[in-house]
Computed example of a mutant assay.
Amino acid sequence: MSAPDQAPILTVTLNPALDLSTAADQVVAEVKLRCEAPRVDPGGGGINISRAIAAMGGTSRPLVALGGHTGARMAQMLAEAGLDPIRLDTAGETRQSVVVTDRDSGEQYRFVMPGPDWPPDLVARSLDEIARHAAPDGFVVLSGSNPPGVPDDYAASLAARLADSGSHLFVDTSGHALSAVASGGHGVALLRMDRHEAETLAGRPLAERRDTALFAASLVKDGAAQAVIVARGGDGNIIATAEGAWHAEAAKVPIVSKVGAGDSFVAGFTLARARGMATPDALGLGAAMASAACMTPATALCRRADVDRLFGQRVVTRL
């Protein structure tokens, strides 16, 4: 896949984490677990998206809230990776997360720490910084959890700040923050969620693809977002817009680790749209990058050769 011109992409990570991943023969209680040397990566939704975009020859700039010794280490890692981070200083220590793979069962155990508490002035300053760096006709991707102290309606506040900027706001969040976006007429450019989150919002099972498409279309009709994507795991991804709905198959690949697959999907979709690709092809690139991420260990994300092959084999159907 060639690397055509693209619109600017700003990724936003309010609650980053230094990701440590390792493996043990078995994960059992009450004994010392002898683990292999850990892999260490800068992580968090927006950071992972920027890393995946870079792996595909695209460009983005991450705006990241960082603090303490861990934050300093992450800033250095991002700079060394060529990502040119915009640092938003926080008072508390940036969190860490740990992924441990049980080699015997193949299961993964994820331990995620809370981030530092945010005072109101930091919330306001973060909105200012995002608005200052958002490019007209560019893309702003708000991805990951909100740290303590950040209000649930943060994405709505950001959408209001960017309303006249010409930037397209993509939101991939969870919990109460997702509910706040989905229930309001904020008109973000894109809202993404997984099947469980969609069923929680809908208050009912979404067993069939048609059920998911109709629910996503209802959010578009209600003005929550111009486009809504629901990830159905092994059953692929569905997008609904005012123009219609499409489904992208999930490629059948050997699963090594699902960590980062969702972020890789958002990276692919965003990069495709920034390169001017049509919605079905953008959905297909997102699906290819998500599947490719499942083929790599721990937090390694996707390999370009895998993505190019899977994208060439994409199956995208209009619903």
Results as ranks from 00 to 15, higher is better:
Arg303Cys: 08
Ser179Trp: 03
Leu191Pro: 05
Gly82Asp: 06
Pro8Arg: 14
Gly44Asp: 06
Ala231Val: 03
Gly115Glu: 04
Gly92Lys: 10
Ala7Val: 07
Pro119Val: 10
Leu122Gln: 14
Gly184Ala: 14
Ala17Met: 02
Ala182Glu: 10
Ser291Asp: 05
Ala17Phe: 00
Arg192His: 13
Ala37Glu: 15
Arg61Lys: 14
Gly262Gln: 13
Ala272Gln: 12
Leu201Trp: 01
Glu249Leu: 05
Ala224Ser: 15
Leu214Trp: 10
Arg61Pro: 02
Gly286Ala: 07
Gly92Phe: 07
Ala216Ile: 00
Arg103Phe: 07
Pro116Phe: 07
Arg275Cys: 08
Ala261His: 01
Arg161Glu: 13
Ser97Asn: 13
Val230Thr: 09
Ala290Phe: 08
Ala55Asp: 09
Thr200Gly: 09
Arg204Pro: 03
Phe170Pro: 03
Phe265Leu: 12
Ser157Arg: 15
Asp194Phe: 00
Asp137Glu: 15
Leu214His: 13
Arg303Ala: 13
Met295Glu: 11
Ala274Gln: 04
Arg34Gly: 04
Ala305Asp: 12
Arg95Lys: 13
Arg273Trp: 01
Ala163Lys: 10
Pro147Gly: 12
Gly45Asp: 01
Val315Ile: 02
Ala7Cys: 09
His186Pro: 01
Phe265Asp: 04
Pro280Thr: 05
Ser291Lys: 05
Gly58Ser: 07
Gly223Pro: 01
His69Ser: 15
Met77Thr: 02
Ser174Asp: 15
Gln226Cys: 11
Thr59Glu: 14
Val64Met: 12
Glu243Arg: 10
Ala224Cys: 04
Ala213Asp: 03
Leu127Lys: 05
Gly46Trp: 08
Ser145Met: 10
Arg232Ile: 06
Leu88Pro: 01
Gly234Glu: 12
Thr212Gln: 11
Ala282Asp: 08
Ala290Tyr: 07
Leu20Val: 08
Thr296Trp: 05
Ser257Lys: 03
Ala3Asp: 02
Leu10His: 04
Cys35Glu: 07
Val31Arg: 15
Asp263Tyr: 04
Arg309Met: 11
Cys35Met: 15
Ile47Gly: 04
His196Glu: 15
Val253Gln: 09
Pro16Ser: 08
Phe265Trp: 03
Val64His: 07
Val112Glu: 06
Arg309Ile: 01
Thr94Phe: 08
Leu285Met: 15
Gly82Tyr: 01
Ile53Ser: 06
Cys294Ser: 11
Ile9Gly: 01
Pro136Thr: 00
Gly144Val: 02
Gly262Asp: 06
Val171Asp: 06
Leu63Cys: 14
Arg132Cys: 06
Ser21Lys: 09
Asp137Ile: 00
Leu310Gly: 04
Arg110Glu: 02
Val230Pro: 04
Pro120Val: 03
Gly43His: 06
Asp41Gln: 14
Asp308Gln: 15
Ser179Glu: 12
Asp263Lys: 14
Val266Ser: 07
Asn15Asp: 05
